[in-house]
Amino acid sequence: MRKIIKFLYIIIGFISLGLGVLGLILPVLPTTPLLLLASYCFVKGSEKFERWFKGTKLYKRHLETFVKERAMTLKQKLSILIFADVMIAIPFFILDSVLVRAMLALIVVYKYYYFIYKIKTVKY
């Protein structure tokens, strides 16, 4: 059972990695969160894939600063925030529940608070 779970982490890691690479080309997909998910999955799934991923230029260019310094560029922050806003807006406008809309609005407010005050903005 443990091997199956590790295998699933590796599969999800590679799917996230592929989508993250697509995010470099397509502005609709956020690169950084997908690469963070890939990194997390590789850590959980395989030490070998974790070492490999952390040695790539992709990791060093897009994640290393965030992982070490808890910092992102303004462009990275905006792409994540805008993508998340679009994803949150879909159920916000589709659903009629006031409670769900209030929870989604609170999530958006917290998300902005977190990105503005908890994650440093760097210039490179």
Rank of each mutant, 00 (worst) to 15 (best):
M1W: 04
M1I: 00
R2N: 14
K3V: 02
K3L: 12
I4C: 01
I4H: 09
I5V: 14
K6M: 08
K6E: 09
L8P: 00
L8I: 14
Y9W: 11
I11R: 06
I11N: 03
I12H: 08
F14Y: 11
I15G: 02
S16C: 13
L19C: 05
V21Q: 03
L22F: 15
L24Q: 13
L24S: 09
I25F: 06
L26R: 05
V28M: 07
L29F: 04
L29H: 04
L29G: 00
L29I: 12
P30E: 00
T32W: 12
T32F: 04
T32A: 05
P33N: 01
L35P: 03
L36W: 01
L37C: 14
L37A: 14
A38F: 10
A38M: 01
A38P: 14
S39R: 03
S39F: 13
Y40W: 15
V43S: 07
K44I: 08
K44Q: 15
K44W: 00
G45W: 07
G45T: 04
S46M: 06
K48G: 09
F49N: 04
E50T: 00
R51P: 03
R51W: 04
W52N: 03
F53G: 13
F53L: 06
F53K: 11
K54Q: 15
K54V: 09
G55C: 12
T56R: 09
T56S: 05
L58P: 11
Y59V: 06
Y59F: 15
Y59K: 01
K60F: 10
K60D: 07
K60Y: 03
K60R: 15
H62S: 03
L63H: 01
L63M: 07
E64A: 08
T65Y: 10
T65Q: 11
F66T: 00
K68T: 12
K68N: 11
E69Q: 12
E69Y: 11
R70H: 05
R70G: 08
L74G: 13
Q76E: 15
Q76H: 11
Q76V: 04
Q76G: 06
Q76C: 11
K77V: 05
L78A: 05
S79C: 05
I80P: 08
L81G: 04
L81P: 04
F83Q: 00
F83P: 02
A84G: 06
D85Y: 10
V86N: 01
M87N: 01
I88A: 08
A89Q: 03
P91I: 06
P91F: 07
F92N: 12
F93H: 07
I94D: 01
I94M: 10
L95Y: 07
L95W: 06
D96T: 11
D96R: 02
S97G: 12
S97L: 12
V98M: 08
V98W: 07
L99H: 02
L99G: 01
V100W: 12
V100A: 12
R101W: 02
A102S: 14
M103C: 05
M103Y: 00
L106D: 12
I107T: 11
I107G: 03
V108T: 07
V109S: 07
V109F: 12
V109H: 02
V109M: 10
Y112A: 04
Y113D: 11
Y113E: 09
I116A: 08
I116H: 10
Y117M: 13
K118W: 07
K120A: 10
T121G: 05
T121H: 03
T121M: 06
V122D: 02
K123I: 11
K123L: 13
Y124V: 08
Y124W: 09
Y124E: 06
Y124S: 09
